[in-house]
Amino acid sequence: MVGLSKRKQYTQAFLYLFPAVFLIGLWVIYPVYGSIRMSFFTEWNLFTQEGTGFGLDNYIKVWNDSQFQLALSNTLVYTFWVVPVSIAASLIIAVLLSNKMRGMKVFESIFFLPYITNIIAIGLAFRFIFHSRVGAITGVFNLLGLEPIGWLNDPEWALITLIIFGVWGGLAFKIVIFMAGLQNIDPQYYQAAKIDGAGRMKTFFRISLPLLAPIVAYITVISLIGSIKVYVEIIGIFGGGSSGAGPANSALSIVYYVYQKFYQESLPTIAAAASVMMFGFILIITIVQLWINRRRLTV
């Protein structure tokens, strides 16, 4: 290369890369090792960074903990609803927003609002909407003569309320990605469909959807991972602290469990084991996605 000795090139690259690589090493790569190591000790000294009682005890304890099982099943139910509902809704909205009609930019800006919004703050608004006595929904129910529902304090409903909040927060990102995907479809496909006399529905299912398949797959993975990590939404809508994750812990999630062990109960090694297990779930999803991608490429 242009007149630089090999050694000088290395020195130069090192200087440019050092800040970022050092920081990522310290705050991202090292803690992967640190947390996995910590998860195998039953006792941990925060100051000496040494542990005692090496083994799988934490994993066995977490796996058999009824609270963790509750967290796992809640997280799965939450994911089971939020992922498909938000993907279907955002795809429909994205298709409609892609119409060349007046005012679509305004709608797009409104649909995007949750993306920039502080979840703790807007969670308060949801609390006020779903409040069983003074909430807006209760107001509508009263007008219609319906029995009010304990959205926030009935254990049967708390998870449903969280799911509604999760869908609300998850639409913005997906709509924008789907719109970008729809824009990238070559208009020639649509012209060809029009010449063949295909209707709108047929065009959508036969052309748009198949061509969007990679984007649907990408969004599904991102939103699966996001849903598995649901946490701030729970704090936002049920408040944190002593009140717990909703009535009778009915909205307890995996990440909530991790932070409860770490922050409230000061059991860092249990928290580490639970977070390593969550990392395992995410890794499996990622590997399955890569495997499907590869198969699609080779077939």
């Binding site: 310290l26 705050w27 991202v28 090292y30 803690p31 992967v32 640190g34 947390s35 910590m38 925060l46 960074q49 991972i225 990590k229 946490y231 990440v255 991790v258 932070y259 770490f262 860092p268 928290a271 580490a272 977070s275 390593v276 969550m278 990392f279 995410i282 890794l283 990622t286």
Partner: peptide, 15 residues
């Protein structure tokens, strides 16, 4: 990029 921040925070706190 695959690593969830929840895994990192525990060690980062002690760092």
């Amino acid at each position: 990029l695959m690593i969830p921040s929840e895994l990192l925070i525990i060690t980062n706190y002690s760092t």
